[in-house]
């Protein structure tokens, strides 16, 4: 069974009196264990699609089913619970909570789920080690490099064993070496742990590692290549 089922998805944005279409009838399915890149030029609808799949925004028409559940039927509180329990997020600008340490950021989702402290620790400490942050657990985001911060974000995204991790331009703010290392880490997590990733990106290095590439142009799927 697919994790995400996108059916005839459309999204329009209002600009004054104008209605600007961002997505026009997108239908896609994403299976467990995937490492998928949504590619396309700026304005093609990548981030819009990612936001709709993540329940961060509401479609104008069409449906998004996550693990069989219709996001539109869930309401804001239901979508919030769905994100907490089934999705992970990695953002371009890392988006760590600046007053929380690396460890506290990584355990944030588990804590919101009510996981006891000992279990959180048992889960998060090895995870931070796995993404290469041993010894940096007590540092605040401001005391970490961009690459390190994005690793914390990856650890935070997968700490709760989500069905799907949505990554919006995760390498855009990193230098090429750090970006490569981060992508290798994410790919390893995909292969070894079976974490499902869906990227919105311009980065050809993501495309090189992806097992499926969906190309968008002007809000439409123009190619869906499986490797």
């Amino acid at each position: 069974m697919e994790i995400v089922d996108v059916q005839e998805l459309e999204k329009d944005y209002r600009q004054g009196a104008l209605s600007v279409p961002a997505l026009r009838g997108v239908t896609l399915e994403f299976e467990p264990g995937g490492f998928t890149a949504l590619m396309g030029p700026s304005g093609s609808g990548k981030t819009t699609l990612l936001n709709l799949v993540g329940g961060l925004d509401e479609p104008s028409r069409g449906r998004v089913l996550v693990q069989g559940g219709d996001l539109a039927a869930m309401g804001a509180a239901g979508r919030s619970r769905m994100r907490l329990h089934h999705l992970g997020f990695v953002f371009q600008a890392y988006n760590l909570v600046p007053v929380l340490t690396a460890y506290e950021n990584a355990e944030f989702v588990l804590l919101l789920r009510g996981v006891p402290a000992a279990q959180r620790r048992a889960k998060v400490m090895p995870l931070l080690a796995e993404v290469g942050l041993s010894g940096l657990e007590n540092r605040l985001p401001g005391e970490l490099s961009g690459g390190q911060q994005q690793r914390v974000a990856v650890a935070r995204a997968i700490a709760g064993d989500p069905a799907l991790v949505l990554a919006d331009e995760p390498t855009a703010n990193l230098d090429s070496k750090t970006g490569e290392e981060l992508l290798d880490t994410m790919r390893r997590l995909n292969e070894e742990r079976g974490v499902t990733f869906l990227f919105a990106t311009h980065d050809p290095r993501v495309m090189a590692r992806a097992r499926r590439v969906v190309r968008l142009e002007d809000g439409r799927v123009v190619a869906d290549e499986r490797r």
């Binding site: 509180a77 760590l96 944030f108």
Partner: peptide
């Protein structure tokens, strides 16, 4: 920052 926390599932 608030948007990130809401995205991660923090209830409003």
């Amino acid at each position: 920052e608030f948007g990130t926390m809401l995205a991660l599932g923090l209830a409003p």
